[in-house]
């Protein structure tokens, strides 16, 4: 019920957004999300966009995790220093 999936806004039309969900186009309401723009990734719940995904935060999180994974990999393969360190 609370399943909310990230989708990209591909068009804006009379206060609504057209979103692309795995290749399927759907409309969603923008009544709960101010200043949405084409190209934004949003979380859509029950027909409403409720959040815009923060690309910088996403990138930062993934970069930190990848760094940690690379360190772990380094330790496993006999303590070699992973690239970039």
């Amino acid at each position: 019920m609370c399943l909310a999936i990230p989708s990209r806004i591909v068009d804006l039309r009379d206060g609504k957004a057209v979103i692309d969900v795995d290749g399927v186009r759907r409309e969603c309401s923008l009544l709960l999300l101010e200043d949405a723009a084409v190209g934004d990734w949003v979380i859509v719940h029950a027909g409403f966009a409720i959040s815009r995904l923060d690309e910088e935060a996403a990138r930062e999180t993934l970069a930190l995790l990848r760094e940690a994974a690379a360190r772990l990999e380094g330790r496993r393969s006999g303590g070699e220093t992973p690239p970039g360190e």
Binding site: I5, P6, R8, W41, L53, E55, A58, R59, L62, L65, R66, A68, A69, L72, E73
Partner: peptide, 22 residues
């Protein structure tokens, strides 16, 4: 753009690292 897709949050390497960390 790609950072927003969900697949990256299923990455086996990252899952493995986090599980090891825990």
């Amino acid at each position: 753009m790609v950072t927003r897709r969900n697949d990256e949050y299923r990455d086996a390497t990252l899952v493995g690292e986090l599980a090891a960390r825990i």
